[in-house]
Design a protein around this nucleic acid. Sequence first.
DNA 1: TAAACTCATTAAACTAGTTTAATAAAGTTT
DNA 2: AAACTTTATTAAACTAGTTTAATGAGTTTA
Lengths: 193, 193
Amino acid sequence: MDSLQNLKNKVLSYTKVDEKPLDYWLSFYEKIELKKGEALVSAGQVVIHFYYLDVGCIYYYKMQDGGTKVLEFYTEDVFFTDLPSYVKGAPSKYFLRATEDTIVYAIKKTYTEKSYDESHQLERFGRLSMQEAFIKSYSRVERMNNRTNEERYLRLLEKRPGLLQRVPQYLIASYLGLTPVGLSKIRKRLMKV
Amino acid sequence: MDSLQNLKNKVLSYTKVDEKPLDYWLSFYEKIELKKGEALVSAGQVVIHFYYLDVGCIYYYKMQDGGTKVLEFYTEDVFFTDLPSYVKGAPSKYFLRATEDTIVYAIKKTYTEKSYDESHQLERFGRLSMQEAFIKSYSRVERMNNRTNEERYLRLLEKRPGLLQRVPQYLIASYLGLTPVGLSKIRKRLMKV
DNA sequence: TAAACTCATTAAACTAGTTTAATAAAGTTT
DNA sequence: AAACTTTATTAAACTAGTTTAATGAGTTTA
């Protein structure tokens, strides 16, 4: 059962879940190891797993106008998937790709649904983790409208130290809604101060 | 029990909930009538209700740099609250204000928590509604990074027809992350085509 | 070791927004 | 109806980004 302990602790940080249903649910997880540059999900696939990132880094992006548009970076100790595809069972429009050697644990939707059916506590965990994800996403919407790109870049440096060391700058630029040239200009401006 | 039927139907559109726990939960709702321009929530208050908008329109905004920054417009048949304050029990940083005469139904957090404790089905409704809110918020994040303001304005017109008729244009501008002048320029540009 | 890539920076011309201020139009109040 | 207030447009000067293309610096591959 390997390093599911991290995952187990993560669940328990949201709400109390009894040992039995939690271990039952955890028993369905499978370990996936990705090499740097490898894709976990590609556009066109139907996503039927929910993932937990244990070690490494994965970026969530789409291809648009011939370029990659990054939506998110997932690093240690987070849950993620392509939710639109996972929920609707429709082909994904996105990619999930490792920026470095990465270990994730994956569980099939059917097993999670079964576990939620059988455990009210696990269902609550599901609700609370979604709630947290929604609040984070919404605060990002707010910042995108009301902060300058420079402020958002500085905040990223502060909130996710080390990310710029792990991930190429042009992906950071895309995440911030900028071109590589635009981000480079901002960095230059900040140097001078 | 008035027009709780709309609210009831809304819940049932997410998942099956037995009559008994659902009616129990609905029994705690209180009707609130707001006049145009009236605030439902003001910054500094701790938000202890979850709301359902039955009739009218409410905008969710914050004061920043001396101006109003609009995050969202809530119209008929949606759930809403200031979630950060509601979840943490901390003073709100936001306002919720009616742009026209509005009717909302409100339920106290303690009653929802009690109902969720007693009904796994209601807890599931809570999870699924949060999931939906998250997906919507995330697709907005994506559009903010990858679409022009002109595209986002046109999409708003298409997705929420009538909103521009109900709400002053400078609030729409703020919602789109623009100044009133900027939005006016975009509209002028679109006229010419 | 050299060749080939990948990635970040720079420059130059351009564009879509900003700010400030003035004007016009519409809605409210007296 | 007149006066006042609120909202939308326009203009002019400005700014923070864009695009395209060239250069440089590290990495990886042969």
